[in-house]
Nucleic acid binder design. Structure first.
Lengths: 219, 219
DNA sequence: TGACTTTTCAAACACTTGTTTTATACTGCC
DNA sequence: GGCAGTATAAAACAAGTGTTTGAAAAGTCA
């Protein structure tokens, strides 16, 4: 509508969003002032209230954009992989999932922003209730459940979801911990390369899933 | 020294620490004002600067106490378990580790505070560099590596650490995600009981570890 | 052009922040 | 008693916060 850049205009709103994306991600909601944002966007402080109606609304708008982008990138990436072969194995599915999960978070600057955003939002709670779960988590659960049913052993639904939690937990922990544990100079505690970790998670988790499907051994 | 409560005195410092513990954990560093703290501790705003020399120093002192407590609780818990049986199995070690890891974070109010503290500090970065890694992570890595070597299959050091990352990642994700996924009323996506998740992680991870020890199958 | 809306801006507003100052009680000791 | 040193408190300080105001500028369309 009015925000279409028909001529050289309506770009202030875009510049604000762009700066807000970076600053909210890096510094978090509280630590980022409107004046920080408008200084970087090179506009007046009142512009935020004019275009978005307040700092809160700007934050939500910024986060939602990133969230929807991430979700769609992940889902299309997985669907593409899964329809690329006729009989995907469990290992194939896991690798596809791991890559779809990680890639948007590590490639380019936007991905890293998202990771920071998540970390900050985990505690800040500045989003409307349910947005995260309904618009982001559930669609992902849907797709991954399909992939697991298609390639893995028979699992009851709760066990399947716990397995997916195990995998997501591993991947998130790698993302957070890798810069911690991998020393650029000198010996690292863990391999510094992400692909090594993906390989590990695939092997580790494939075995874990199959073990969860097997009947429990009673000693 | 001076903070010993010889008579009814020197308790203001303690009250401040106690309130700060709760407020910093729940609200984070930035969102907690020293007026919040002193109001709850029922003393003057100047008391914080008098006893601790500023908000930053108070935060570090508060966090360090919680951190050291957690580390020691975990380590003694694991050492006790591991020396309680003569030939601990891998599953036994994993269960001991999972419980030692989780229990301090879920029992009583202090545990939950720690979890919140961690979540906030993950992004805030208000701690002196290295405190986290040197005084907290490394000692834990040391103990768990021992336990894994004692009970698990032979693993090269990097693989062993990646396996430990896999386990820690799962446990952390359960802690964060369980209140999310488990619906108090109505059907839950995952079991609402923590012990069910521990059982899952043990089984999942034992299989994963053994798979990482096995030679790679080349198709 | 001229009326009309949309956008931008400098300034001000009301409020909160961490910290410092100044003064008052309280302790133990001579 | 007087005198250190410690501890608490009320008030003020300087800086920063999100938001609002009122006017100027830019753009739109008859």
């Amino acid at each position: 509508m009015a925000s279409e850049t028909k001529n050289g205009h309506a770009e202030t709103r875009e510049r604000i969003l762009h700066s807000a994306e970076r600053l909210f991600a890096v510094q978090g909601f509280n630590a980022t002032s409107i004046r920080d944002i408008t200084a970087e966007a090179d506009c007046n402080v009142a512009a935020v209230n004019y275009h978005f109606g307040g700092k809160d609304k700007l934050y939500i708008e910024t986060f939602r954009r990133l969230l929807v982008d991430l979700r769609d990138r992940r889902i299309t990436s997985m669907r593409r992989d899964m329809s690329a072969v006729s009989e995907p194995t469990l290992e194939y599915f896991l690798e596809s999932f791991a890559n779809a999960f990680l890639e948007p978070l590590v490639d380019g600057s936007r991905g890293r922003l998202l990771l920071l955003f998540f970390a900050n939002e985990m505690t800040g709670n500045h989003l409307p209730e349910g947005l995260f779960l309904d618009e982001f988590i559930r669609p992902m659960v849907q797709v991954t459940t399909e992939g697991l049913e298609q390639t893995g052993p028979a699992l009851d639904p709760q066990t399947a979801r716990m397995c997916m939690m195990s995998i997501v937990g591993q991947l998130l922990h790698i993302l957070k911990g890798l810069p911690f544990f991998s020393n650029p100079e000198g010996p690292s505690l863990v391999p510094p390369d992400l692909s090594d970790h993906v390989r590990h998670v695939v092997r580790f988790s494939a075995a874990g899933i199959r073990a969860c499907a097997a009947p429990v051994e009673v000693s």
